[in-house]
């Protein structure tokens, strides 16, 4: 293992580069703070409103609205997504066609367009709902298409022998699907679902454009009222990051555990960026599952650590 460790010269160089990098980072921070101070953005008057109970409650209620929209939309999208996935895999051509067309159509749609459509077109055609439901509707239409793809990929990832065995035991198509295939496939989908939940949660901020009072909209209100848009948006960003960090940790944990257990790859869907990334992180954390090479006894970055400079001395055992 010593062959992988850095020699004295390598360590010295790493230290040197570290100091340089730290100096650059410090310089950037100093310039940023200077800028903030020079433009008066660090003044207590601009940050003080964010410490007032009423403002904090106002913003947290926005976060609550965000979470409500996200959970209602997620629940509905999962039901419709499941129906779409089963439809695409059904034996009836009409079902396959309809479900397939829905998924392909809405997957390539920007969500903002759907939100605008729901918020601007539907009221005109007599569908008078609270703004909450317009936002939920747009989120459900888009996310059910993506979740439909996730579910389908999850079901297809299961070994065909499972269905065949069920049929051999006399199960009908739907019996086999619902009692044998879906329960097993569901486990494989969990990380991808959590990861899609993160995307959905971020996307609720589009309620901003149709004046739904979620976190971002309320941050704008605060910023306009107290003349501190920078600070208010910053607070909103912080809250989003906090919630999403927790969720992405969960997604990553689940993905890694799943890989260890089933050795199955992550489920990805084209055009969905967060899904790509969960798959990627799991791979970085556990590359063996994919490449099936000899077990790596070191973590990924220590492996990289050894590349810094050519070996300064011969390997020792």
């Amino acid at each position: 293992m010593l062959a992988d460790a850095l020699g004295p010269r390598g360590r010295r160089r790493v230290r040197l580069v570290s100091v340089g990098a730290m100096a650059v980072i410090a310089a950037v921070l100093v310039i940023a703070f200077r800028r903030l101070a020079d433009t008066g953005q660090l003044d207590a008057a601009r940050w003080e409103p964010l410490t007032e109970g009423a403002v904090i409650r106002f913003l947290l209620n926005g976060l609550l609205a965000t979470l409500q929209v996200a959970s209602v939309a997620m629940a509905l999208a999962m039901v419709i997504g499941a129906a779409l996935a089963l439809g695409r895999l059904a034996r009836t051509p009409v079902l396959r066609l309809v479900a397939g067309a829905y998924v392909e159509f809405f997957r390539g749609f920007p969500l903002l367009l759907l939100v605008l459509f729901a918020g601007l077109a539907l009221p005109k055609y007599g569908l008078d709902l609270p703004v909450f439901w317009y936002l939920v509707l747009a989120l459900v239409v888009y996310n059910s298409a993506i979740l439909g793809e996730i579910f389908r990929a999850g079901i297809l990832s299961l070994d065909k022998g499972q269905t065949e065995a069920a049929h051999a035991l006399g199960f009908s198509y739907w019996q086999a699907m619902l009692t044998v295939v879906v329960p097993q496939a569901a486990r494989r989908m969990v990380p991808a679902i959590v990861s899609q939940l993160i995307t959905l949660l971020k996307d609720t901020s589009l309620g901003f454009v149709i004046a739904f009072p979620e976190l971002l909209r309320r941050a704008r209100n605060t910023g306009e009222f107290y003349q501190n848009p920078l600070q208010s948006y910053f607070a909103a960003a912080l809250l989003y990051i906090l919630v999403n960090l927790v969720l992405s940790r969960v997604a990553r944990r689940l993905e890694i555990r799943q890989r260890r257990r089933y050795g199955a790859g992550a489920i990805t869907v084209a055009g969905a960026e967060d899904l790509t990334v969960t798959a990627v992180q799991a791979e970085a954390a556990n590359p063996r599952a994919r490449s099936r090479r000899a077990p790596a006894s070191r973590s990924q970055w220590t492996r990289w650590n050894t590349w810094w400079w050519p070996a300064a001395r011969p390997a020792q055992r």
């Binding site: 971020k202 901020s205 901003f208 971002l216 910023g223 948006y233 960003a237 990051i241």
Partner: peptide, 15 residues
């Protein structure tokens, strides 16, 4: 990555 794109957009443009 964990900040919504909408938030980044308004933070940068208006903040």
């Amino acid at each position: 990555r964990n900040t919504p794109l909408t938030v980044l957009m308004v933070l940068f443009f208006f903040g």
